[in-house]
Design a protein around this nucleic acid. Structure first.
Lengths: 166, 166
DNA sequence: CGCGCTTGGTTGATGTGTCAACCCAGTCGG
DNA sequence: CCGACTGGGTTGACACATCAACCAAGCGCG
């Protein structure tokens, strides 16, 4: 069924590993998201924003800083921040006349502090501990290599566009 | 900043590996999806469906078989198949009086055959070759272990619900 | 028979992501 | 000073995912 040899095709082992990986990621992601949503009413996106804000010294960041940290497109950021503000998790505060800062609210802080321990515990249980230290270290290395490879490749396609959504 | 010790918290190395992994996955997924979308007009979801249909002997499957293969919720499947039919990639054909079969159309077949080589080449370039055979084999093993771990855990929570959307 | 349960599937409301277009304040070259 | 360009951000239309509710066979069993 699978064409072998010199072509771009994957051989059976490669195919199998790739599909195992895809299934693993989907299973893990679904599990984590459902947990976050059902127990704490936060989506993965909410969580990402709140983590970044809560880890910053001041609890405030500009939208484009969040964009750099999360790798989201700016329109997604804008939409999601609007929704989060409506739910009281963050607040847009005007500061330097033009371009508001995004501030985490007490409610937002409470939400992330409530869910963080359980979230971390799940990462440990289903990911970190199953890998174990050695294999986990290897994964970290390969992950960075892959990101570099893709970045380098995309750099070739569109050199000038840096932080826009190339 | 990070609480260490016996708690659920991740230590620095673990945190770093986990975040590298997340970034890698997002970068890779975004790259693959954009490629598929821009060059071939297919979403990742379209691709998944078409792969399954094109790999089946008859080019036809029931919706719930596709659901088993893709791990999608049934409503997502229904919505997406409706949209794909509207675009001419698949067709719902009535057969056993009740419950249509999903058949890949000539157009759908052409679409996936057109994009498959380039898609496989990208998986090879950015994933398989960066890992290399040894590390890739390890990843495959760990992935299966993780899926087992999560499945076992979820089995504890909700034993009777098998294929529904527990 | 008739009641209820399960299975496969659809529907609609709502929340979320993406794309393209736009806005507005600097800024830089003339 | 004026026009073009850039960077940060918003908007609207649309594609997509999720949830809960529903529908319609078929099955089991009293």
């Amino acid at each position: 069924m699978v064409v072998v040899g010199k072509g771009p095709w994957l051989d059976d082992d490669e195919q199998k590993a790739w599909r195992s990986y895809l299934l693993m990621h989907k299973t893990l992601e679904t599990h984590m998201e459902r947990h976050l949503q059902r127990e704490y009413g936060l989506s993965k996106s909410d969580f990402e924003i709140l983590v970044n804000l809560s880890e910053s010294k001041t609890g405030r960041m500009r939208a484009f800083e969040l964009g750099r940290a999360t790798q989201w497109e700016k329109s997604r950021m804008s939409h999601h921040l609007t929704r989060m503000e409506k739910r009281g998790l963050i607040q847009k505060v005007a500061c330097d006349s033009r371009y508001p800062e995004i501030a985490i609210t007490a409610e937002g802080m409470a939400a992330i502090e409530a869910c963080a321990p359980a979230h971390a515990a799940r990462i440990r249980e289903f990911f970190v501990d199953v890998f174990g230290p050695d294999r986990l270290a290897v994964l970290g290395e390969v992950s960075d290599e892959i990101v570099d490879t893709i970045r380098k490749h995309e750099g070739n396609d569109c050199p000038p566009e840096v932080s826009g959504n190339c």
